[in-house]
Design a protein around this nucleic acid. Structure first.
Lengths: 133, 133
DNA sequence: ATATTCACTTGCGATTCGCAAGTGAATCAA
DNA sequence: TTGATTCACTTGCGAATCGCAAGTGAATAT
């Protein structure tokens, strides 16, 4: 299920960038096609990694959110981020990565807290691109 | 690069099952087509995650091996394995997984040692299938 | 000398993909 | 209140990728 080009990127954007809406994913700069995005979101819902919720403000808008199972992928994503940084396939600044690596446990705890509290501040401030997963 | 159905499975088989040859991957039961396998192995070589070496015994045979960059994926794979087990998408026995989780650091150290020493004993004895990555 | 094994390669039909355009419902701007 | 815009998708279509079956050439076994 996670073995495709987009699923892990979607999960990462939910987890570390605080993305919520279809439009945010679509415009995230990695250039996912809308049909593929819709398909991947549905498949991630089917396997209970993400879920949807209505927002009171705008009845058109749907917010996607990681489930418990989804947020449990945080260690995987963090390790992948660290790996990408170490081998220079990311644009995340090296100093930030070193910090993440040194404080793995507290970063994971913070990630989970942000999820529980629906805290949308990005985990890594101004984290930009990491295409080459 | 890792965003496809087979690459992570190949890396996992190299890392935890001790697979080395084309034939072993082909017969591993997940049913990868030979053309796809050849393509993925080449692509993993291109991005320096695996490398090849000749074996003296049989000049037809090629052994694939993780590079330093490849073995650095061990934390990712281990976390993914633990995640799959926790959410019941694996057949690895639960007790073994709990042990892996509790001793994460020593498991990683052992994985790296096995790689350095070219120790081919499987990391998880009789570990069988984990298709649903 | 013949058969088998090894790591692939080739051909081909089927699935999946990315791109562009369109849909319907909800919201905004006049 | 009415027309334009925004939102989350769908649809159509050509192109790329896929899985399967069969074949290739070199090395090894009998």
């Amino acid at each position: 299920m996670l073995g495709d080009r987009w699923s892990l990127l979607i999960i990462r954007d939910l987890m570390v960038r605080g993305y919520r809406t279809f439009k945010e994913f679509q415009q995230s700069g990695e250039g996912i096609a809308t049909n593929i995005l819709a398909d991947r979101l549905q498949k991630l819902i089917n396997v209970d990694i993400i879920s949807t919720e209505q927002v009171p403000d705008d009845r058109r808008s749907i917010h996607y959110r990681l489930t418990e199972k989804g947020i449990d992928l945080a260690p995987v994503l963090l390790d992948l981020l660290i790996w990408g940084a170490r081998h220079e396939e990311t644009s995340a600044p090296c100093a930030v990565i070193n910090q993440l690596e040194a404080n793995r446990e507290s970063v994971l705890a913070e990630t989970r807290r942000r999820w529980k509290d629906r805290d949308l501040t990005p985990l890594i401030p101004k984290f930009q691109k990491e295409n080459k997963l």
